[in-house]
């Protein structure tokens, strides 16, 4: 190659490189496009619409009619129901997240035992996973049935007259939480078992050489090293409990006396329950739900950055 040809090639190279980069950028964008279209139409546009609807009144088929400013928010915050709704939502989260994680942590620790038949127990504990929110709620509605249900059957055997599991305002929320924890257990267990499996044995051996035993090992090694998984589960199950709908719809329809009406159920009943169609009010509640979830996510990122990862 002559020296002129080389220098010409060198001069041309940047142009080809730019063209290639531009082409690659175009290909990349085309690959993102299908997803972006779906997100734009079914996530971002509705997100804007949620805000828009929340500051409008609407007709029976949901068409916004009149700009009403913050009226829906004022009605919501000063109305008689909203405080109860938030309270119910909060308690439902506590009643599902805390027992769910505590029980599955216990099970995960038991499953690290080196004894025969662990695989059997693992599979047994994963079985609730086969159920959906709907199927589990239907099964629990049979178990909770106050006339012929198994749970009241057991109470009867020990001399109790039984409970009105789903119709007593004092315990209906707890009953729904029991069904939810049962459904959730398999997932929590999978996450925690995976976390426990990732803790190197040498750590325990080293600690044992230093004379650590029993709870001391659990407290200084197992729990700190499991912190990322525990933290992840707390966040994920809290958000999931906030989003719960099917089990409430199927088991109690938000009753008795609204004691199981959580935020999401309230959105449903304001917007869609028979003869309601108050999309503006329901959208104001939807915005509150969005804000709560965003705050939890923000806290999650804040803490993740700083503390939880020891490794």
């Amino acid at each position: 190659m002559s020296s002129e040809a080389v220098s010409a090639a060198v001069e041309r190279a940047p142009a080809t490189a730019t063209r290639r980069a531009r082409r690659e950028g175009l290909v990349a964008f085309l690959f993102l496009l299908p997803s972006l279209v779906v997100f734009l139409v079914f996530v971002f546009y509705p997100l804007v619409q949620s805000f828009y609807l929340s500051v409008h009144s609407n007709d029976i088929i949901g068409r916004p009619t009149l700009f009403v400013g913050l009226q829906n928010y004022v009605a919501m915050l000063t109305g008689p129901d909203f405080r109860l709704v938030l309270w119910t939502t909060f308690w439902f989260a506590v009643l599902t997240v805390v027992p769910g994680i505590a029980i599955s942590l216990g099970l995960a620790l038991l499953l690290t035992a080196r004894i025969r038949g662990i695989r059997f127990f693992r599979t047994a504990f994963a079985l609730p996973f086969a159920f959906s929110v709907a199927t589990s709620a239907v099964v629990f509605s049979v178990l909770f049935n106050s006339a012929v249900g198994v749970l009241n059957g057991l109470l009867f055997q020990i001399g109790s007259s039984g409970l009105a599991w789903l119709t007593d305002p004092g315990i209906a929320l707890v009953s729904i939480a029991i069904a939810t924890v049962w459904l959730q257990l398999g997932y929590d267990l999978l996450v925690l078992a995976a976390g426990l499996g990732a803790i190197p044995d040498e750590l325990y051996e080293a600690a044992r050489l230093d004379g650590a035993t029993g709870w001391r090992l659990a407290r200084s090694i197992t729990l700190p090293l499991l912190a990322p998984q525990l933290f992840f589960l707390i966040v994920v199950s809290t958000i999931q409990s906030l989003q719960s709908f099917g089990q409430i719809y199927i088991l109690t329809r938000g009753g008795p006396s609204n004691t199981t009406t959580t935020l999401v159920y309230s959105i449903y009943s304001k917007a869609f329950a028979f003869g309601s169609s108050d999309f503006g009010f329901a959208s104001a509640e939807a915005v509150v739900l969005l804000l709560i979830v965003l705050v939890i996510t923000a806290i999650q990122f804040g803490i993740l950055e700083r503390r939880v990862f020891y490794r």
Binding site: P46, L47, S50, L53, G62, Q243, I267, A271, S283, V293
Partner: peptide, 8 residues
Amino acid sequence: PWEAIIIP
């Protein structure tokens, strides 16, 4: 959360 955009 899907429930926050389910109405639109």
